[in-house]
Simulated assay, not measured.
Amino acid sequence: MFGGGGMNPRKMQQMMKQMGIDVTEIDAEEVVIRTADEELVFDGAQVTRMDAQGQETYQIVGSPETRALGSGEESADAEGAGDVDGDDGSADSGGIPDDDVELVATRAGVSEADAREALEAVDGDLAAAISRLE
Protein backbone atom coordinates (compact mmCIF):
# COMPACT_ATOMS: atom_id res chain seq x y z
CA MET A 1 0.00 0.00 0.00
CA PHE A 2 2.62 2.58 1.02
CA GLY A 3 6.37 2.75 0.83
CA GLY A 4 6.93 3.61 4.47
CA GLY A 5 10.71 3.66 4.15
CA GLY A 6 11.10 0.08 5.39
CA MET A 7 8.34 0.38 7.98
CA ASN A 8 6.04 -2.57 8.43
CA PRO A 9 2.85 -1.85 6.40
CA ARG A 10 0.67 -3.15 9.23
CA LYS A 11 2.38 -0.82 11.72
CA MET A 12 2.00 2.05 9.24
CA GLN A 13 -1.76 1.38 8.96
CA GLN A 14 -2.08 1.24 12.74
CA MET A 15 -0.30 4.59 13.13
CA MET A 16 -2.45 6.21 10.45
CA LYS A 17 -5.61 4.94 12.13
CA GLN A 18 -4.44 6.47 15.44
CA MET A 19 -4.00 9.80 13.65
CA GLY A 20 -7.54 9.59 12.28
CA ILE A 21 -6.55 8.74 8.73
CA ASP A 22 -8.72 6.10 7.08
CA VAL A 23 -7.12 4.32 4.10
CA THR A 24 -9.18 2.33 1.59
CA GLU A 25 -8.08 0.46 -1.52
CA ILE A 26 -10.39 1.05 -4.50
CA ASP A 27 -10.83 -1.68 -7.11
CA ALA A 28 -10.63 0.65 -10.13
CA GLU A 29 -10.69 -0.69 -13.66
CA GLU A 30 -9.72 2.59 -15.32
CA VAL A 31 -8.85 6.12 -14.21
CA VAL A 32 -9.04 9.05 -16.63
CA ILE A 33 -7.53 12.45 -15.89
CA ARG A 34 -8.73 15.01 -18.44
CA THR A 35 -6.69 18.19 -18.88
CA ALA A 36 -7.25 21.08 -21.27
CA ASP A 37 -5.45 19.35 -24.13
CA GLU A 38 -5.03 15.65 -23.32
CA GLU A 39 -6.25 12.67 -21.33
CA LEU A 40 -4.14 10.48 -19.09
CA VAL A 41 -5.69 7.01 -19.00
CA PHE A 42 -4.60 4.54 -16.33
CA ASP A 43 -5.74 0.95 -17.04
CA GLY A 44 -5.59 -1.38 -14.06
CA ALA A 45 -4.09 1.26 -11.77
CA GLN A 46 -3.84 0.86 -8.01
CA VAL A 47 -6.07 3.49 -6.41
CA THR A 48 -5.98 4.35 -2.72
CA ARG A 49 -8.35 6.75 -0.96
CA MET A 50 -7.19 8.44 2.24
CA ASP A 51 -9.72 10.25 4.42
CA ALA A 52 -8.04 12.57 6.90
CA GLN A 53 -10.37 14.76 8.95
CA GLY A 54 -13.00 14.81 6.18
CA GLN A 55 -10.52 15.65 3.42
CA GLU A 56 -10.33 12.85 0.85
CA THR A 57 -7.14 12.31 -1.12
CA TYR A 58 -6.72 9.80 -3.93
CA GLN A 59 -3.43 8.20 -4.91
CA ILE A 60 -3.06 6.56 -8.32
CA VAL A 61 -0.18 4.18 -8.97
CA GLY A 62 0.35 3.02 -12.53
CA SER A 63 1.59 4.03 -15.96
CA PRO A 64 -0.77 6.26 -17.94
CA GLU A 65 -1.42 6.19 -21.65
CA THR A 66 -1.60 9.72 -23.06
CA ARG A 67 -4.34 10.51 -25.58
CA ALA A 68 -5.27 13.74 -27.31
CA LEU A 69 -8.70 15.04 -26.34
CA GLY A 70 -11.51 13.63 -28.44
CA SER A 71 -9.49 10.63 -29.64
CA GLY A 72 -10.69 7.14 -28.96
CA GLU A 73 -14.21 5.83 -28.53
CA GLU A 74 -14.17 6.01 -24.73
CA SER A 75 -13.68 9.77 -24.60
CA ALA A 76 -16.73 10.28 -26.82
CA ASP A 77 -18.81 7.89 -24.66
CA ALA A 78 -17.53 9.32 -21.41
CA GLU A 79 -18.11 12.92 -22.48
CA GLY A 80 -20.65 14.28 -20.03
CA ALA A 81 -20.86 10.98 -18.13
CA GLY A 82 -18.70 12.21 -15.26
CA ASP A 83 -20.25 15.64 -15.05
CA VAL A 84 -22.04 16.05 -11.76
CA ASP A 85 -23.21 19.62 -12.11
CA GLY A 86 -24.89 19.19 -15.51
CA ASP A 87 -22.45 21.56 -17.18
CA ASP A 88 -21.65 19.16 -19.99
CA GLY A 89 -20.89 21.75 -22.65
CA SER A 90 -23.91 20.60 -24.69
CA ALA A 91 -24.33 24.05 -26.11
CA ASP A 92 -25.98 24.71 -29.42
CA SER A 93 -22.93 26.52 -30.78
CA GLY A 94 -19.56 27.89 -29.84
CA GLY A 95 -19.06 25.53 -26.93
CA ILE A 96 -20.81 27.89 -24.51
CA PRO A 97 -22.49 25.81 -21.77
CA ASP A 98 -26.27 26.16 -21.59
CA ASP A 99 -26.02 26.92 -17.86
CA ASP A 100 -23.87 29.98 -18.64
CA VAL A 101 -26.34 31.17 -21.28
CA GLU A 102 -29.23 30.80 -18.84
CA LEU A 103 -27.34 32.66 -16.10
CA VAL A 104 -26.46 35.60 -18.36
CA ALA A 105 -30.02 35.76 -19.76
CA THR A 106 -31.48 35.83 -16.24
CA ARG A 107 -29.02 38.39 -14.85
CA ALA A 108 -29.25 40.74 -17.83
CA GLY A 109 -32.98 40.25 -18.42
CA VAL A 110 -32.57 39.28 -22.08
CA SER A 111 -33.43 36.28 -24.25
CA GLU A 112 -31.19 33.23 -24.29
CA ALA A 113 -30.31 33.93 -27.94
CA ASP A 114 -29.06 37.41 -27.03
CA ALA A 115 -27.19 36.00 -24.03
CA ARG A 116 -25.50 33.36 -26.21
CA GLU A 117 -24.45 36.02 -28.75
CA ALA A 118 -22.96 38.18 -25.99
CA LEU A 119 -21.09 35.19 -24.48
CA GLU A 120 -19.69 34.23 -27.87
CA ALA A 121 -18.56 37.82 -28.47
CA VAL A 122 -16.57 37.85 -25.21
CA ASP A 123 -15.26 34.26 -25.42
CA GLY A 124 -17.50 32.93 -22.64
CA ASP A 125 -16.63 35.59 -20.03
CA LEU A 126 -19.80 35.74 -17.89
CA ALA A 127 -19.17 39.12 -16.28
CA ALA A 128 -18.22 40.76 -19.56
CA ALA A 129 -21.30 39.32 -21.30
CA ILE A 130 -23.63 40.62 -18.55
CA SER A 131 -22.10 44.10 -18.53
CA ARG A 132 -22.24 44.18 -22.34
CA LEU A 133 -26.00 43.49 -22.23
CA GLU A 134 -26.86 45.93 -19.41
Rank of each mutant, 00 (worst) to 15 (best):
V47C: 07
G86C: 02
V84E: 09
E56T: 06
D77H: 05
S75Q: 15
E56M: 13
G82T: 05
V47R: 11
A68S: 13
R67I: 03
S71M: 13
S75I: 06
S71P: 06
G86Q: 01
Y58K: 05
F42P: 05
G86M: 05
V61N: 12
Y58N: 00
E56R: 15
E39L: 10
L40G: 01
Q59M: 15
G82I: 07
S71W: 11
S75Y: 10
G80V: 06
V47D: 00
D77P: 02
G54M: 08
G70H: 11
V41Q: 03
Q53Y: 07
D83T: 02
F42I: 01
D51E: 09
E39K: 09
V41G: 05
D83E: 07
T66E: 08
T66M: 06
T66F: 00
A76L: 14
M50C: 03
E74T: 04
L69Y: 09
D51M: 05
G70S: 09
A81Q: 14
Q53M: 13
A52W: 06
P64N: 09
Q53S: 07
V47P: 03
L69V: 10
Y58V: 02
S75W: 13
E56V: 08
T66S: 07
Q59E: 09
G70Y: 12
A78T: 05
G70L: 08
G86W: 03
G44W: 08
A52L: 09
A76T: 12
A52E: 06
A81N: 10
S71F: 11
V61I: 15
V47E: 01
Q55D: 07
R49P: 01
D83C: 04
D43W: 01
R67G: 01
V84T: 06
D77V: 09
V61C: 11
